[in-house]
Measured scan of single mutants.
Amino acid sequence: MKVMIRKTATGHSAYVAKKDLEELIVEMENPALWGGKVTLANGWQLELPAMAADTPLPITVEARKL
């Protein structure tokens, strides 16, 4: 699914347009965010693609819901 990742004042957030859902990312498998699992505030887990740590945000990526 397409997910937009952006930086907020409190960390990172994910927006899933198909579900009209925006949630804070509360847990990251990798400190650089990319190439691992993230957990959203509502409990969803997404697998993000591997990208460079300095990838500019906001960005829309293809993520997989676990």
Rank of each mutant, 00 (worst) to 15 (best):
M1S: 04
M1R: 02
K2Q: 14
K2C: 14
K2D: 09
K2W: 14
V3A: 01
V3R: 01
M4F: 07
M4H: 08
R6E: 03
R6K: 14
R6V: 09
R6I: 10
K7V: 08
T8E: 06
A9I: 11
T10G: 12
T10S: 13
G11C: 06
H12E: 02
H12P: 07
Y15W: 11
Y15A: 07
Y15N: 05
V16W: 15
V16Q: 02
A17D: 09
K18V: 15
K18T: 15
K18Y: 15
K19P: 10
K19A: 15
K19W: 15
D20R: 12
D20V: 07
L21E: 07
E22H: 11
E23K: 05
L24A: 14
L24K: 12
I25H: 01
I25W: 02
I25A: 00
I25K: 00
V26E: 06
V26H: 05
E27A: 13
E27W: 15
E29Y: 06
E29P: 01
N30H: 12
P31G: 11
P31M: 08
P31W: 08
P31K: 11
P31C: 09
A32W: 15
L33P: 03
W34K: 00
W34I: 03
W34S: 01
W34A: 02
G35C: 05
G36N: 03
G36W: 05
V38T: 00
V38K: 01
V38I: 14
V38F: 04
N42R: 00
G43L: 03
W44Y: 04
Q45R: 12
L46R: 00
E47K: 10
E47D: 09
E47T: 10
L48F: 03
P49G: 06
A50Q: 12
M51S: 04
M51D: 01
M51N: 05
M51F: 06
A52R: 10
D54C: 05
D54T: 09
D54E: 10
T55P: 06
L57C: 04
P58M: 05
P58W: 07
I59E: 01
T60S: 09
T60W: 15
V61M: 03
V61C: 04
E62S: 12
A63F: 06
A63E: 03
A63P: 04
R64P: 04
K65H: 13
